[in-house]
Structure formats: C-alpha cells, structure tokens
Design a protein around this nucleic acid. Structure first.
Lengths: 197, 197
DNA sequence: TGTACATCAGTGAACGCGCGTTCACTGATGTAC
DNA sequence: TGTACATCAGTGAACGCGCGTTCACTGATGTAC
C-alpha cells in the first residue's frame, strides 16, 4: 500500500538479528541501545526511525522470536493426526528449539516478564494470537474425541509447556543443570499422561 | 561469636522487607537503590554497610524469598506419608504461596534469570541446598517403594513444579489470564499422574 | 520530458537524568587493664 | 572504678558513568503536472 523504499524491511530484519546477537553475547544487562548501535553500525536516529524507542525494538524482537517458536511447534504438528504423537512431537520441538535457537529462546524467557508498553504489546499479540489459535484448533478434535481431557485452554497449556518451559529456563541459565537429551526422552510421554481424561 | 550490636539483624530484616515492598509497588524497573533508600529512610552508606552492593541486597532478598517458598512446601509435606497426598499437597502449597505471598513469588520469578555475582550465589545456595535436600529425602522412599517413577531429581522437579511455576508466572504477570482456584483443583492430580512409574 | 516538491531512510553530536557507588565522618556501645 | 581505645551501625554530600532520547540535518528516490 504505502510506498516502501527498497531495503527497509531488510534493514529492520538485520537490526533485529544483530540485536539478538548482542543480547546473547552481552547478556540482558548488556542489551542496550548503545550496544545495538555499535553492533549494527547504524545511527541512533535510524533505530528510532524504525522502532520509535528501545522498548519498541525489544518488543519487535520478542514478537519475532515468539513467532519463530510457535511456528516450530506448528511445523512439528503438521500432518500428525494421532493425539499422543502430536503432543509428544510438540514438546520435543520445544526442547529442540531451545537447544538450536538458544539465542531466541533466551530472549523469550528473559523478556516474558518485562511488561512492554501497551502499544507494543498489541504488535506482539498480532503475531502471537493467530498461531496460538492454530495450536488450539489442532487440539480441539482430540478433546472432542475423548482422547485428551476436557480442560480449559490455559490449564492445557500449563500442563503441556510447564515442564518443558521450566527445563528450557533451567538449561538456559545453566546448561550443566539439566540434560536436554534426557528431557527429550523423559518428558513427552509423561506430559501426555498428565493430559489423559 | 563476633559481638553484634543490638538491632543489626532487625535492621537487615527491615531493609529486606521494605525492599520487597518497593519491588512489588514500583516493579522491577523501579527497584533501585535510591528507591529502597527512600522507602527505608536509611542512608546509602548504611545499605552498603550491610549488603556491600545493590546486587548483594538483591541476592539476600532472593535467598530469603526462596527459603520462604521452600519452607512452605516442606510444611505442606510435614506428617504426610502417602506419596500422592504429598505431591498434591506440595503443588497446592506452591500455588497458595503464589497467591498469598505474591510479592515474594514475584521477586523469585523475576530474579530467577538475573545471574547474581558468584559470591552472592553462594549465599543463596547456602539457604537453598539444605531445603532442597529435605524435599528430595521425602521423595526417596516413595521412589524406592515403586509408587513414584524412578526419575533423576531434575526431571522429577521439572514435572512437579513445571506446571505450577508456569501458572504462577502467568498469574503474576496477568491475574486475569489464569484462575488459581482452577489450577489448584486441576493440576495436582495431573502432576501426580505424570510421575507414575 | 523537465522541473518542483514530498517522502523517508539514515546521520551523529548533544542532552539531561538517574543510576550505583564512594568516603570521610559521627556517635553509641563493647573491651582491656 | 575509671580511662583509653576499638568496633561498628549509620550518615549524606558528591562522584562519574552510561543510559535512552532528541533534533536539525543530508541525500536519494518517488510523485505531480
């Protein structure tokens, strides 16, 4: 619709990619506007032009990481019709995302508590809501068919991602504290068990 | 051993109590040395005298909150010999701690990612380790007796506290997003199911 | 086609602010002899 | 008992630093007529 100069989206994507690297390399304390400016080689004015504020940049990055994670779960469910197989595939996908995209996983878990400004929260919801809806839609027939307990979506989510999210958090803060291979083997069937009618 | 002036421990406790209130009222962003100084009415020098640094104060507060949480779980297990009854009591205790001591719960969950300086981490471990050991000790005979699956302590912890910790986090960031009463009814038996041999 | 104007990505020096921290100090209490 | 000294809780003005943010600007590209 509105005319976009060539390279705008690419610039935004490049800034976010560099910002994620800064966060991974320098930690949450070292994740500052100054550090992102230094890493991208861009000017502060340019970052403000694209994101409005540092909070806006962080929210955009969070939205992108969260969308990546949810897409990973959706990909894992793609084509799977068996309820148990799907639940176990999704939980394994969560753990493998944690390992393989640990930068994104770290940013998600670190920022989950940082309340973004309302306007930025809306941008996040815009990316998040449709993906969550797809996940719920996958589950619906299995609940209707009596293969999964009839729980509220929130309780379902707590039981499904609680153990793997906690495992991810623990591993991200200390990789020696928990073995991801062990978690991948142990957790999925037990999470499935917790969802039985 | 070393002579202590009257009131020292009381002063430290009072500072920590006020610091927790500051964190609850002003949020993580507003949790600053300046704000704690204003809330306690003490001087910055006095806070440095007792805690060495702001990181030291935060670590001491985290240690106290975590000890309170673990003591709550231990109290819930006190006198219970049945495995299922104990597991369900502990998970319910976690949720009721979240509701009733929400300031402490919020500080725990917010700080869990903030890596404290090594020296302060040691102080935390000193309070935490013996309590974790007691929890593990409670579980041992039930594993030996075949009533609970023979899992590594970490996996056991992920399955046990994963769903309730995730519920707590969600509720703390948005109380309307999850119903703690529902969680108290729904989660305990399902967590128990996930621990079956 | 040429000219004038609008749009927008990107620049970078400068800003004020609030942060954690320092340090020379006071005064009350405990200890030695 | 009295005197001298040590210890330690607590004071508060002052510090430097790095933060997010601002703003007047440049220059390339798109649009109108």
């Amino acid at each position: 619709m509105s005319p976009k100069h060539q390279g705008t989206d690419e610039t935004v994507a490049r800034i976010l990619t560099e910002a994620l690297r800064v966060h991974a390399e320098r930690g949450h304390e070292g994740f500052t506007m100054k550090a992102v400016i230094a890493a991208t080689g861009m000017s502060s004015g340019s970052l403000y032009h694209h994101f409005g504020s540092f909070d806006g940049l962080a929210a955009a990055l969070y939205a992108r990481c969260m969308a990546d994670l949810l897409d990973t779960l959706l990909d894992a469910l793609d084509g799977i019709t068996d309820a148990q197989e799907g639940v176990e595939a999704a939980t394994r996908a969560y753990l493998s995302f944690t390992r393989e995209r640990s930068d994104a996983a770290r940013f998600i878990h670190t920022s989950a508590y940082a309340a973004f400004l309302p306007e930025h929260a809306a941008v996040i919801a815009e990316l998040k809501t449709p993906r969550i809806a797809k996940l719920v839609a996958w589950m619906v027939p299995h609940v209707a068919g009596g293969r999964v307990a009839r729980l509220s979506p929130v309780m379902m989510e707590m039981l499904l991602i609680g153990p793997v999210a906690e495992t991810a958090r623990r591993w991200l803060s200390d990789p020696s504290a928990v073995d991801l291979d062990e978690a991948t083997a142990v957790l999925p069937p037990r999470i499935w068990a917790s969802l039985q009618p």
